[in-house]
Design a protein around this nucleic acid. Structure first.
Length: 432
RNA sequence: GGAGAGGUGGCUGAGUGGUUGAAAGCAGCGGUUUGCUAAACCGCCGUACUGAUUAUAUCGGUACCGAGGGUUCAAAUCCCUCCCUCUCCGCCA
């Protein structure tokens, strides 16, 4: 949410910044509601002030046994008027707030400007895609042959897009989660948290999923809760409606499953692990002072990249353009892994600085050195998402015989395993 | 799920209709004293919105004692609804 005062005082700047996102927002409506709200407040607060003063007089008169019917009658009229005006204020407040919630964050100065992902800038490419002396296979073919997952059975019990990992496949998920959490907590300075996997509408609004993304989430109707689409939601909301008294920055990391309906994506990449409704992810979240948030964004990206470097996977980092950053972000880097079976780059991480956008929605504040209260800056990034990471591991590590050579760094988390072969997978096959 | 108790400022904890934004204590901040530390003493010590002024500094107004509604000239205090926490019982992992 943007600060209404900023819109009020720097209307032209805000309009220009929003225009870079490629959409036109009706600031006039917001400003009109703001003007009307303040006019109403001035009037009704004057009435309340008078009522408070006269009520005090009435109290004094009563104590002395003096008559005060006249004052009481007058204040009854004033009270009725106050009730009316309070209702008007409430209506305008709701209008204003819902309008503000629809306005995206302002893009950070210096982002590449452009309408869509074509204008994203490649910040760097790390690692060299392997040269194959055979035609590399896709992860679905590789993994099914090795018995790592079974999409057909998962579809029978749930539906398309819900992976079922089996044997070494399931263990690989668990190993990757632990691998990443260990690095972030032991080497990158994050504190691990394990949050709820469902959140209420207020939390979803705080991080920006609501109101615009309602259709993309799974909702538990009986309790008015949503399955989280990312750990960002519960982890960022840890400090919802608080003035944080502890020293910043606070760096948290969490493993959670993530649930996304992918509304509107029907028919796209339905096979395999590239686009699924449920997936595992390790997330990093930071609460920082405004002055340091862009430096913290760089280390956040570096922390995510470190995972990929240790896994010896080729990747590139994109600096997203004004038209491609998410609703709540001011600046965002995407990290994409090279997947030879797809012959394409796959997004496995999105690292964003939201500045005070989420903090203002969620009411997350801190005390500055001068004692004043101010909104924190929030950041988050995947560190990283599992399914596409598995895709890259399988497709990059594949051998001509269909086995997979695993990165050395992962072996301690897999009981010393260095290679996934048919034999090892078969011993764990569900249907024998 | 059943029965009971309760939700007040960073914390503890007073307060049952009229200078209560809210006693007191602790913590915190500033200062005095002190060779240093400690102690003692003095002062300060919520948030948001809003108005005035050149001012994120100052002064004023309004609101907030779990949330929302109601009664009243006036509500932390009375009434209603909801949420949450705690204790005991039951159930389950």
């Amino acid at each position: 949410m943007l600060d209404i005062k900023l819109i009020r005082e720097k209307e032209a700047d805000v309009r220009a910044a929003l225009l870079k996102r490629g959409s036109i927002f009706k600031l006039e409506d917001v400003l009109a509601a703001d003007r009307r709200r303040r006019a109403l407040l001035t009037e009704v607060e004057a009435l309340k002030s008078r009522r408070n003063a006269v009520s005090k007089e009435i109290g004094a008169l009563k104590k002395q046994g003096q008559p005060c019917d006249e004052q009481q009658a007058a204040m009854r009229t004033v009270g009725d008027r106050i009730t009316e005006m309070d209702n008007e204020v409430r209506t305008v407040d709701l209008e204003l707030e819902s309008a503000l919630l629809q306005i995206p964050n302002l893009p950070y100065a210096g982002l590449p400007v452009g309408p869509d992902k074509e204008s994203n800038r490649v910040a760097r490419t790390v690692g060299t895609p392997r040269v194959f002396d055979f035609k590399p296979k896709g992860h679905v073919e590789l993994g099914e042959a090795l018995g790592l997952f079974d999409f057909a059975r998962a579809t029978r019990m749930t539906g398309a897009g819900f992976p079922l990992f089996i044997g070494v496949g399931a263990r690989l998920e668990r190993a990757l989660i632990q691998f990443m959490l260990d690095i972030h907590t032991q080497e990158h300075g994050y504190t691990e948290v394990s949050p709820p996997f469902v959140c209420n509408p207020a939390a979803m609004t705080g991080t920006g999923q609501l109101p615009k993304m309602a259709e993309d989430m799974y909702r538990v109707n009986a309790d008015d809760l949503y399955l989280i689409p990312t750990a960002e939601v519960p982890v960022t909301n840890i400090y919802r409606e608080e003035i944080i008294e502890q020293t910043l920055p606070i760096r948290l990391t969490a493993y959670t499953p993530c649930f996304r309906r992918e509304a509107g994506a029907a028919g796209r990449e339905t096979r395999g692990l590239i686009r699924v409704h449920q997936f595992d992810k390790v997330e990093m979240v930071k609460f920082v002072e405004p002055e340091t948030s862009y430096a913290e964004l760089e280390t956040l990206v570096a922390d995510a990249e470190d995972i990929l470097k240790r896994l010896e996977l080729p990747y590139r980092v994109l600096e997203l353009c004004t038209g491609d950053i998410s609703f709540a972000a001011a600046k965002c880097y995407d990290i994409e892994l090279w997947a030879p079976g797809q012959n394409d780059w796959l997004e496995v991480s999105s690292c964003s600085n939201f500045e005070s956008f989420q903090a203002r929605r969620a009411g997350i504040r801190y005390r500055r050195k001068d004692g004043k209260v101010d909104f924190v800056h929030t950041l988050n990034g995947s560190g990283v998402a599992l399914p596409r990471l598995v895709v890259a591991l399988l497709e990059n590590g594949q051998q001509a015989d269909g086995s997979i050579v695993l990165p050395k760094a992962l072996s301690p988390f897999l009981g010393g395993m260095t290679r996934i072969e048919r034999k090892a997978a078969e011993t764990k096959k569900v249907d024998g």
